[in-house]
């Protein structure tokens, strides 16, 4: 590239201009972001744009192929697939964000404390993180769900708990670096309290890799939700989610194989979009990384 990096900007570009430049220069990232925003918009508008209610049964339409009345056909109970796909998206997105929020709420403070305090606190926390990371993620989530009780919310709390150590490890490593920066020393010399130093100086500077990781974890959480719901440990009937739709479609695969494409593709594209956006953010947020 003959390139923008060697040119010295006359003045600091506005945030919008920077965003616009990123949007044009990184096509894959831009498409992913647009797709995800569209998906969220569809989820918010679900009650108005969905052609049927998600649990509305029309036995005559059971396992109907694609048609004008049912654009994507209907499942074995005659429920409209498109409507269930839209409402399933609501459940799947809610689940992903819930799990990742919990992971952030647990993982970030634990990681910052371990990295900043050091000593035996760090040693203990690091061992605990290592132990958690030796559990295969979904297996531990299933076990936690079994303990808490079956259901979408419990399932995603479990997934959040399982993801938290990954974030904690990342934040800890980053905090270890930031802790020794000159500006943190300066803040300490001026008598800033530990809480203030953590909030104002350490956290904002350690958060960047977290933003990338959170985006990638959203994809992982989406797949985890689909897995749990497919197994019957997540969302409970009659509520739809993409994983639960796949489970039903699989039971009727020999009669209506086309029923397993819409939810499967929805999961694939959404996970792909989160992952691609994560990779784009990694490049965009890292000033030292050269574009190639």
């Amino acid at each position: 590239m003959t390139d923008a990096t060697t040119m010295v900007p006359a003045r600091r570009p506005s945030r919008f201009a920077g965003f616009a430049r990123w949007f044009v220069s990184d096509l894959r990232g831009a498409i992913s972001l647009t797709f995800l925003l569209a998906l969220m918009l569809i989820s918010v508008l679900a009650p108005w744009i969905s052609p049927y209610a998600p649990a509305e049964q029309d036995i005559d339409a059971a396992l109907a192929p694609m048609s004008g009345a049912h654009w994507l056909g209907a499942d074995d109970l005659g429920r409209d697939t498109l409507s269930r796909l839209i409402y399933g998206g609501v459940a799947s997105l809610y689940a992903s964000f819930l799990a990742v929020t919990i992971a952030v709420l647990i993982g970030v403070p634990v990681g910052v404390l371990a990295g900043y305090l050091g000593g035996w606190v760090d040693a203990t926390i690091s061992r605990v993180i290592d132990s958690f990371l030796s559990f295969p993620a979904i297996v531990l989530a299933i076990a936690v769900t079994g303990a808490l009780g079956i259901g979408l919310t419990n399932g995603m709390i479990s997934v959040g708990i399982v993801f938290a150590p990954q974030l904690a490890r990342l934040v800890r490593a980053r905090t270890l670096v930031v802790r020794n920066e000159l500006y943190v020393d300066a803040a300490r010399c001026f008598g800033g309290s530990t809480t203030r130093i953590l909030w104002r100086h350490v956290l904002p500077n350690a958060i960047q890799p977290v933003i990338v990781q959170v985006t990638l974890l959203l994809a992982a959480a989406l797949l985890a939700e689909a897995s749990l719901s497919f197994l019957g440990l997540g969302i409970q009937p009659p509520d739809p989610s993409w994983g639960a739709m796949l489970a039903r479609a699989y039971q009727n695969m020999e009669i209506a194989p086309e029923q397993m494409y819409p939810p499967g593709l929805a999961i694939l594209f959404t996970a792909l979009a989160f992952n691609t956006l994560g990779e784009s953010l990694r490049v965009a947020l890292d000033p030292t990384m050269k574009r190639n």
């Binding site: 994809a219 797949l223 689909a226 897995s227 497919f230 994983g243 796949l246 479609a249 699989y250 695969m253 194989p257 397993m260 499967g264 999961i267 694939l268 996970a271 792909l272 992952n275 691609t276």
Partner: peptide
Amino acid sequence: ASLGVAVPNFWLGMLLVA
């Protein structure tokens, strides 16, 4: 590689069975 990471294993399994 991007597709391989994003595809749900169990859905791929269903497609293979089909």
